[in-house]
Design a protein around this nucleic acid. Structure first.
Lengths: 216, 216
DNA sequence: TGTACATCAGTGAACGCGCGTTCACTGATGTAC
DNA sequence: TGTACATCAGTGAACGCGCGTTCACTGATGTAC
């Protein structure tokens, strides 16, 4: 019988799982620059060779984490889309969801945004997993078309716009400049995100009217 | 007399300049993962210790390149803003300009987007240089407000939106997924960029009308 | 213009380090009968 | 249930490597007189 992928304990316990956990914790604690296979093994309390029983090489571990990140992101995006009261709200909510996901799991997203670490040419799984997330975006845009908010035709410009917007906000937040800018503006990254998505929605539904509801 | 920063040749020629050139070329040829100070020195045809007469350490070189990138980007953004016939067009043009800049100088932008390499905590110059670029965006948004396209008030949501949009498209392009997606859509990253900026502008000026001019 | 000296920007050898990966091994776990 | 054996997931030592950085040095460039 082949080794089950879901068993709870063998020798060490489920080392594969613990390596992923340790790597995520390491990135969150010391930044993406601190990642190395040896270091992750050390954090997991295991010898440097041990990971090779679970991952072909360093990039395989990082790819596995990226894949998990995309899967979790997609799940949250699907929930957000289902909960949104209108199609226009869904688009804004998807952007927000991506950003909150990055805030809650910065390590996943940082890996997802650094292909030089996962080497997608070698391990294409992460890219495949990412396509699932984009599918949710596309479906949401198609909803908008069905509701007449967005004209029919190729949905990809709006899909690309929403996707890029989400990645852009996330990058600015995780990389630091957003935090600093928000401080000098008297707001927060989360607050600015909500303002941006509100702006997006108002552009979609009501022309260029921009609501400044937060007392400006 | 102190050493002039702009002299053409001393011993080697202007090594500082050549190190920057070599590093940029290296990133463009082999990707951001190939960067090391030793390697850059080797590419410039110089011994491993030579760079230390021009840069305090590795991150200082990478910061200098980021700074140069932001300066060049800002110059191009200013030109684009001046050439734009309308304020709304200026916003779209700024996004496009950022994206074309990334296409023309991927190495600069990749460094700008990886703070763990420049270590902004140690060398804050890059962040300062980046603020110049955002000032151009802000001015363009204020133009829109002056023209009545955008309601008065805090410009930062729209500034953030345009900024994030630009960075998002750039990230998707440089990191690969955009290229692949565009192929399967029968378009190109540049084409999709233009579609996205057109969409942005039409959202700003005319509600949510989305022109599909490319025969779809 | 020529000489003596200071400075500057290179060389190349060396340092210690952490890295990714391999490998012979071992002992725990699972399987067959 | 007990024993013999196979497999599996660890250990820990070792490999070769490239890295960032330092340092004593050297020879070219610039400066003073």
């Amino acid at each position: 019988m082949p080794v089950s992928e879901t068993r709870e304990s063998y020798h060490h316990g489920s080392l594969r799982e613990e390596l992923i956990t340790a790597c995520v914790a390491l990135i969150e604690a010391e930044g993406i620059g601190a990642v190395s296979l040896r270091r992750v093994a050390r954090e997991a309390g295991v010898s440097p060779g041990a990971p090779y029983h679970h991952f072909a090489d360093r990039s395989a571990l990082l790819t596995a984490i990226s894949v998990r990140g995309y899967e979790r992101l997609e799940r949250r995006l699907r929930q957000a889309r289902q909960l949104a009261p209108t199609a226009a709200r869904a688009l804004g909510a998807l952007v927000e969801t991506y950003v909150w996901f990055a805030r809650d799991h910065p390590a996943y997203v940082q890996l997802m945004l650094r292909p030089e670490l996962s080497q997608p040419a070698k391990h294409p799984e992460a890219q495949t997993a990412g396509e699932g997330a984009i599918r949710v975006l596309t479906e949401a845009v198609e909803d908008c078309q069905r509701e007449g908010i967005v004209p029919p035709g190729d949905p990809s410009p709006l899909v690309g716009m929403v996707w890029a917007l989400a990645i852009g906000i996330v990058t600015l937040w995780l990389d630091g400049p957003l935090e600093g800018r928000c401080v000098s503006l008297g707001t927060t990254p989360a607050g600015l995100t909500v303002q941006i998505t509100a702006l997006l929605e108002s552009m979609l539904t009501g022309g260029s009217r921009q609501s400044n509801t937060d007392g400006h």
